[in-house]
Amino acid sequence: MAKYIGKRLLYMILSLWMIVSATFFFMRIAPGNPFASEKKLPPEIEANLNAHFGLDKPWYAQYWEYLVRIVNWDFGPSFKYKSQTVNDLINEGFPVSFLLGMEAIFIAVALGVLLGIIAALKHNRWPDYTAMIIAVLGISVPSFIMASFLQYFLAIKMGIFPVARWESFMHTILPALALASTPMAFIARLTRSSMLEVLANDYIKTAKSKGLSSGVITIKHTIRNALLPVVTYMGPLTAGILTGSFVIERIFGIPGLGAHFVTSINNRDYTVIMGVTVFYSILLLVSILLVDIAYGIIDPRIKLAGGKKGE
């Protein structure tokens, strides 16, 4: 187990290095620079600015400096906002994004699994059809449209929730719902099909032949096995929630990391773009690792490589 995790960490560092390098070079290829704006800056000032941020040095020197700083968890200053470092932005925005993401993941998993189980247990009856209609809607409606719908009906028309901003728990519900709708629908379909597959399995018949009640069979034999694919989906789910939050945070005016990220791209704020990208990558890689470890714990057939082989 320890050996397995060690190996995975090594791969993670390798992937991170590639991501950092790729972002670094793509940023340099992209036309324009952070100080290009409507107002033409006098060349002396621009040269000064470049010198101040180290942009006058050759690329390999910049690249090396950047790598060293990242290893020290220092993403440098923001080009645009003089007084803030990228670390400040992350420290400020991430807790907000994290809360939103967690809420969305919770909604997606809880509702999705519930819908899927109900649909499978009532296979080809009205609860199944209802759940699947909800799922198809959830999958086919993009989250930003879902967001506007929710804002229009639940906030503006019915006044149940605030329209936007990030002040109280009530403010978090609509954006979390909008963010959760697509993955929830996907999880519902995944759970349903995997439940149906498990229900058709011989071991369910075995369980029945022991005289267990259908409730016990569902809980002890069906759901646990049916949730294995859902656990696998948690990695991509995290990625989806992260990227989805860029747009949702903009729509609801939420001061999260996603919103900063979008702004910084518009501003060509090199250091912020790179810093946030690296930060997101770390987040994603860690969550995928956690999912894999969790999977190994839930499914006894998966022996994490490096662990002792059974038999």
Binding site: N201, D202, Y203, K205, T206, A207, H221, N225, R301
Partner: peptide
């Protein structure tokens, strides 16, 4: 049942 590979709960 016939198939002992599938008639036991794997988890």
């Amino acid at each position: 049942f016939q198939d002992p590979m599938t008639s036991l709960n794997p988890t």
